Simulated assay, not measured.
Amino acid sequence: MRSSKTQFSLSLKLLLICLAFLFILFLVLRSSSQPSSHQIPPLFSSSSSSNSSDSDQTTCSQAPTCTKIPPSLAQAMVHYATSNITPQQTKKEISVSLRVLERKSPCNFLVFGLGHDSLMWTALNHGGRTVFLEEDKSWIDQISRQLPSLESYHVVYDTKVSDADQLMEIGTKEECKVVGDPRFSKCGLALKGLPNEVYDIEWDLIMVDAPTGYHDAAPGRMGAIYTAGLMARNREQGETDVFVHDVDRTVEDKFSKAFLCEGYLTEQEGRIRHFTVPSHRTVAGRPFCP
């Protein structure tokens, strides 16, 4: 999720500013369509004058709060407008997840990785819960000092990219096709050391953009991809949108196709793939991959 310090993308700034403008315009139009709190009450109102006064005071006191920019959006606008660091995903790649968030937010959004785009994801999911899982404890501390509103947890991975072929073979075993809570899975690919609440929540969106996977000694995303798919299949009903970034790399390419399934592939833009994985608990006998 971390990227080199280069010039911030103008197109991404424009995207965020446009979103903010549209949100403010929506609030203004909504507030203007509502009756004014200072209108004279109707002559034949059945309520007493004291009740009308109380109602007017309540409306007046609530109106300013309703028309404010959400704190998460305001913070994101300031952060990115004053930053010279570019998020790793391109505008087109971000737009893939944005389209789903526009439809589903506020929702539960789990992100493997904590980075310079984390505040953006939180702002785009305003009113929902966005949780970040990060392997680097010192990086969490650094980001938390800058952006204390983000909800992040430290995760320890016990795999390496060099183990990918062996883990792929493990993933073909029958125990890895069993749908259930990852904490109790017998599959060697399932991540069992995540915070308990991560397993207890049904995630509407899951973004796999970590852990580090660009060299052999790095943890790799084998377990994260498999576990994301298992969580999606194990939800009680509905479907989960799962995104995998860096699919131009071997691990992300092969593991996403194998465990999120090409049959569930909805879209690919650049280096990001979008899978829509349905619940397997609502249809008896549904195969692991369609």
Rank of each mutant, 00 (worst) to 15 (best):
T6W: 07
L12W: 05
L12T: 12
L16D: 08
C18I: 15
L22C: 13
L27K: 12
S33N: 05
Q34A: 13
Q34D: 02
P35H: 03
S36V: 05
S37A: 11
F44E: 09
F44P: 00
S45L: 05
S47V: 14
S50H: 12
S52C: 09
Q57I: 13
S61F: 09
Q62P: 08
A63I: 13
A63K: 15
T67R: 13
P70I: 08
L73C: 04
Q75H: 11
A81E: 10
N84K: 15
I85Q: 11
T86A: 10
P87I: 05
P87A: 11
Q88T: 05
V100E: 13
E102P: 00
P106C: 07
C107M: 07
C107Y: 04
N108S: 09
V111Q: 08
D117L: 11
S118A: 07
S118P: 04
M120V: 09
W121Y: 10
W121E: 06
G127M: 08
R129W: 04
T130D: 04
F132S: 02
L133S: 02
K137T: 13
K137S: 13
S138Y: 07
W139G: 06
I140H: 03
D141C: 10
D141T: 14
Q142G: 01
I143K: 15
S144M: 14
P148I: 05
S149M: 14
E151L: 15
E151Q: 12
S152R: 15
D158V: 04
D158C: 12
V161W: 01
D165S: 14
D165E: 14
M168V: 09
M168T: 06
M168P: 01
E169N: 08
T172C: 12
K173E: 10
E175Y: 01
V178T: 10
V179L: 07
D181C: 04
G188W: 03
G188N: 10
L191V: 08
K192Q: 13
G193E: 09
L194F: 02
P195S: 05
E197Y: 05
E197C: 09
E202G: 07
L205V: 08
I206W: 00
P211Q: 03
G213E: 04
Y214C: 08
H215Q: 12
P219K: 09
M222E: 03
T227F: 02
M231R: 09
N234I: 07
F243K: 09
V244P: 00
V244Y: 05
V244G: 06
D246L: 05
V247C: 14
R249V: 07
D253S: 12
D253M: 07
K254N: 10
F255A: 06
S256H: 00
K257F: 03
A258E: 11
A258L: 12
L260D: 01
L265Y: 00
I272D: 00
P278N: 05
H280F: 02
A284W: 08
G285Y: 01
R286P: 01
P290L: 04
